[in-house]
Design a binder for these strands. Structure first.
Lengths: 229, 229
DNA sequence: CGTTGTATTATGGTATACCAACATACGAGC
DNA sequence: GCTCGTATGTTGGTATACCATAATACAACG
């Protein structure tokens, strides 16, 4: 590989100017995840056109994508609504997360090199910081980053996609459960336990700590869902 | 609940006349899964319009859906192609399946009532039958049904959706691995082992047998992918 | 003969037009 | 006043039109 080849590689244009559809998809997804649209709210196509300033073609394609992601539900003969979340769905999502995350965590504990460990420590520090200043969004981002490192480091990007997609469906619960967990216990104790096991390369212990963490979140979520009704 | 109420319930219209989009989605998905379109093949929208006899709006919405499912890839500035499958993707898919299926199988072994067991036995008989007559499609259908019962019986429909979607991405491998496994070993020995453990309500053993089964499939798939190159 | 500029074509991105089904409101007839 | 029918509006489903860009072919020029 010559210097010349490197220079040429640097020329490559890799950020294709986003299409309206991609922008709209991103906006809509965020809007739903952030709760800008209530679960069950109707998503009238022509209204969305005005709100986003694009044509119905674009909106409809975005809706198809979000439908496949499970963020939007299509009621036959009535049109699209923001997906609602029953406890039974949430329960299943937490179960699946427990499976996938504990597997990834164990894998990470088995193979993690120093580089990964230090990146994890960084994420954990960030979590501590945001946790002390009671910033829900910050806690969520830091926790997400912690897990992202675990999945990516083990080459589990497909599992990460699945987990991310599932998390987006429980976004509303997630921000509350995470805040609760970081308020009641002494900070992010459970995450720290996971990290400690990874650092000492103890897969079984790490996986078990992870399962505990997810189950705790599920328990809190169940409470929340019961109270909201 | 009066007889009257029952009669009224029977009046309910529950099969909304499928839209063109739903039909087209189904057809396209099958076409890709069955290999009618080669992986990597371009999916030119106007061509598909003629082939399916619908407008581009419909085709494009279907493509968005399939894109989100991972069956179609969008190359920026070049349009959609049938998703290709690298071994690294297949590897991950088998790993995820191992996690989710073994969890579901353990759950099933823990809780399965007689009704579930007899339905599983039925599926197993069907698998024996199709296996004896070397029918690849029959083997695939029977195996799918076996797992479907396991997931549905435990209330794991979301996990089942995920597994189904992943399986559709490895459909080509799947039909070959299943045939191979049912040819080399004495019939569906591994599936039978899973069933036996479920029947005796032994979750750990059932889960382990399931993991073995998936790992064996992955090993064969790896061979296949290596040879195809 | 090759290089460069230009016309043509193929194709995806976006907007718009039209229709059918369902819902709502209103008015005629009893 | 109640019922039914009709007009009107809302909204999703589908088709089509138009544009921009990238690739290709071709021609002109050196």
């Amino acid at each position: 590989m010559s210097q010349n080849a490197n220079d040429l590689a640097a020329l490559r244009i890799d950020s294709p100017p986003a299409t309206l559809r991609e922008i709209a998809l991103d906006r809509m997804r965020r809007a739903i995840i952030n709760g800008l649209f209530e679960p069950g709210a109707r998503l009238v196509e022509r209204t969305l056109c005005e709100q986003l300033g694009v044509s119905r073609s674009v909106i409809r394609e975005v809706l198809r994508h979000l439908e496949a992601e499970g963020l939007v539900e299509m009621l036959a003969k009535q049109g699209p609504i923001v997906a609602r979340l029953e406890w039974d769905d949430a329960r299943q999502i937490y179960e699946i997360r427990a499976s996938l995350e504990s597997t990834a965590v164990a894998d990470c504990a088995r193979t993690a090199a120093d580089g990964v460990k230090s990146r994890l420590r960084q994420a954990l520090d960030e979590l501590d910081r945001t946790s002390r200043q009671q910033s829900p969004q910050g806690i969520l981002d830091a926790t997400t980053e912690f897990y992202r490192i675990i999945f990516e480091s083990g080459g589990h990007n497909i599992a990460w996609d699945i987990v991310s997609r599932l998390n987006s469906r429980i976004s509303r619960l997630r921000v509350m459960t995470l805040s609760t967990m970081n308020r009641t216990t002494t900070g992010p104790a459970q995450i720290r336990k996971i990290f400690a096991a990874i650092e000492r390369n103890e897969p079984e212990i790490a996986a078990e700590a992870c399962r505990t963490h997810v189950q705790a979140a599920a328990a809190i979520a169940k409470e929340l869902l019961a109270n909201t009704r």
